[in-house]
Design a protein around this nucleic acid. Structure first.
Lengths: 206, 206
DNA sequence: CCGATTGCTTGACATTTGTCATGTTTTAAA
DNA sequence: TTTAAAACATGACAAATGTCAAGCAATCGG
């Protein structure tokens, strides 16, 4: 059995987060801020296929991926899975609606690979935002990026073919093809796995 | 020629905005706050078909619709219009990306009918957010609603048929069918006008 | 290393949606 | 009111995508 914890240990995990915050915002963190961040974020490891939440749960935490990958999807009445989000290390993931409004989520959040997370509740996050300028800047920037990404995804959905949407997605996220199964990517794009398989084949022929 | 200004005059227009803020947030506004709001928002009227911004412009203002309606759309390389947003009175509209990052917008914002607006620059908005709790709550709530709406639209796009997307949209916005042309709604849904026409016909047959 | 499960590919065909052309209806300006 | 323009509807057909079934390939636990 493989070890699930980072070889370098928990400490390195928090280091990764604070490095990310500093790099992402351009604002350094002082010693007190580092401590507050360590106290606010819970470390968690998920095995492959493990769920962080399921339909009907409240999404209590926003999660920062240290390693591994996750996907968030909904299940339609006919039992089909529809992928709302795909996330790799250094990405954030949560159901924004449930997290902020404390309503039951429509989604499932599942680890695609063995995954390490740092999780923060909304109360802790609001506290850090108030106290730490770098965290405030980060939260603001994440929200903005999220908004822009969703806008672009909507535009792709209403204007592009399956083929174009796929190549757009890979262009923005070149590693997705290696890290997520064909079925997951197809479901993210809103096409059948068969269609995506044919799109890939057509791309090879060029 | 029809008069474009509200019969009741400009004052009533600002009253509408402050009533909206109070009702939307549940937080009352005091006299000083009302004055600050009046100073921060510019009144503007747009004739039908007039553009508030075009591709390449910076979206300098967020607009609150007092009356009328607008749509925001992009034009693809093949010259097709793709509607990102449809807005009626009491709705807010802007290109969130351009407004916040000061980048040139990809979109056109056009009045669908003669429209009255109250517009606010990002600097003024940030100031009001700092100074007025009700405005802070409102901005937060608008952002959250926006995020949720986009998430739901993405889910509809990747999981529902043209027919289901149309009826979903009308369910959430029953007046859209009267206020926006078939072509605009079709382009919002990401289907051809002919398809939407047939969807409507099928709905009648039930 | 093996078998079983899962993921992927492929073909045949069905369904949905798009495109083009044309005619009708509605709208708005003179 | 009249007329031109725009919006909408409809039929015929084309293209894109979905579905189903079967086989192949990769993966993983024993």
């Amino acid at each position: 059995m493989k070890a699930l914890i980072s070889p370098a240990g928990i400490s390195a995990v928090y280091q990764l987060l604070s490095d990310y915050i500093t790099a992402f915002t351009g604002i350094p963190l002082n010693e007190n801020e580092l401590i507050a961040i360590r106290e606010a974020f819970k470390y968690k490891k998920c095995r492959r296929y493990q769920y962080l939440f399921q339909e009907g749960d409240i999404c209590k935490y926003m999660a920062f991926l240290i390693s591994g990958s996750m996907r968030m999807f909904a299940v339609s009445e006919k039992g089909m899975e529809h992928t709302m989000d795909l996330a790799l290390e250094q990405a954030w993931v949560c159901d924004y609606e449930s997290y902020n409004m404390l309503t039951p989520t429509k989604y499932y959040l599942q680890a695609v690979e063995d995954t390490e997370l740092l999780m923060i509740s909304n109360e802790h996050l609001q506290y850090l935002i108030q106290e730490i300028p770098a965290v405030a800047a980060m939260a603001r920037k994440i929200e903005l990026n999220n908004m822009v990404n969703r806008q672009n995804r909507i535009y792709a959905n209403i204007s592009l073919s399956a083929d174009a949407r796929y190549h757009d997605l890979l262009n923005a996220n070149p590693t997705f093809a290696r890290r997520f199964s064909l079925a997951m990517i197809a479901s993210y794009l809103g096409v059948s796995p068969e269609t995506l398989s044919r799109v890939r084949k057509a791309a090879l022929a060029r």
